[in-house]
């Protein structure tokens, strides 16, 4: 479904992607993981044909640079934050993008109900919350039932509650044989949506792993995701290992499987070693959708 062959992208002298190759078969669900600047969003923009690059990307057999319109007919895209025209009504926005996709939605209300926005059609977009705007973007992305969804850190601007609801909605809508390609900083999203995880580091594919291996439960009740500065990660991992934990690097920090009664211990160990933690998440529940026919290789 999506073929990425030898893609290199430079901005001036800076090389953001270096010889990235990847094939995603139809129905696959692939997450891009990596630190800021690793090249996740750039790669997605290349897939959409928004950026010029060296190499070749095809979607459904269509070259995204030479036959961009045909390729994008197969893609529904949800950006990190939507900059819709604020004065537009929700139903007008849906109709506008439907026309750009060459379709006539039978009922805008039905489209909105599908993403949890019933009765919001007459509202101006400026009146919507961030979460509602993302739902609208998802509604637009799903117009025409595209076989591919491309999501670029779609929950980054949402609060914890909104994130959970949105991921649940995505899980429901995408788990129907659709190919899903998304960038995320959040392990719980990857656990809920991805089948495979591509770890990008400095524009190169570092590893490709199964999502079930990614957060590494290893018999623990939950997993701590600790965001730690790159230059302190090795020493933090050493400290945690000496404390009996099994931390794993994941591009922006460490994943530490922990039992519920020991959740605070990694914090104590790192504080004693004067290692700062920039952020953390506690991951306790996950589900993996059962997608068929997925193949990812670099």
């Amino acid at each position: 479904m999506i073929s990425i062959q030898g893609v290199t992208k430079r901005f001036g002298r800076s090389t953001v992607l270096t010889d990235v190759s990847l094939d995603v078969l139809g129905g696959g669900s692939v997450a891009f993981w990596g630190a800021n600047g690793a090249g996740k969003s750039t790669l997605l923009r290349c897939v959409l044909g928004l950026l010029r690059f060296d190499g070749r990307i095809t979607v459904g057999g269509h070259d995204v640079l030479r036959a961009g319109k045909h390729a994008r007919m197969l893609i529904g895209y949800v950006p990190q934050e939507l900059g819709f025209y604020d004065d537009l009504r929700v139903d007008e926005a849906v109709r506008y993008f439907a026309r750009l996709k060459g379709i006539a939605p039978r009922s805008v209300d039905a489209v909105l109900v599908g993403v949890g926005l019933p009765g919001q059609g007459r509202k101006r977009i400026r009146e919507l919350s961030g979460g509602m705007k993302q739902r609208l973007a998802l509604a637009v992305a799903m117009l025409g039932d595209p076989p591919v969804l491309v999501l670029d850190e779609v929950t980054a601007s949402l609060d914890a509650c909104g994130r959970g609801e949105f991921v649940s909605l995505l899980s429901r809508l995408s788990g129907t044989g659709r190919t899903l390609l998304f960038a995320s900083h959040r392990v719980e999203e990857i656990a809920a949506l991805a089948e495979r995880v591509v770890v990008l580091e400095r524009g190169k594919i570092e590893t490709v792993t199964r999502a079930s291996d990614f957060s590494g439960h290893l018999g623990a009740d939950s997993t701590l995701h600790l965001t730690i500065r790159a230059d302190a990660r090795d020493s933090a991992a050493a400290v945690l290992r000496s404390g009996g934990f099994a931390p794993r690097h994941n591009g922006v920090g460490l994943l530490v499987p922990v039992r519920s009664e020991h959740k605070a211990a990694p914090f104590r160990l790192l504080a004693d070693a004067s290692i700062a933690i920039d952020d953390f998440e506690l991951l306790t529940a996950r589900s993996t959708p059962g997608h068929a026919h997925t193949e990812v290789h670099s």
Binding site: M1, L25, G26, G27, G60, G61, H62, K69, H70, R72, M73, L74, R99, L100, K101, G102, I103, G144, D145, P146, P147, G177, R178, T179, H291, A292, H293
Partner: peptide, 20 residues
């Protein structure tokens, strides 16, 4: 006109014309 998929199979869809 619109693409619908089964896993691994794609029907191509025609994008709107230049004039449209």
């Amino acid at each position: 006109m619109n693409a619908t998929i089964a896993a691994g199979a794609v029907r191509t869809a025609t994008p709107p014309s230049f004039g449209s």
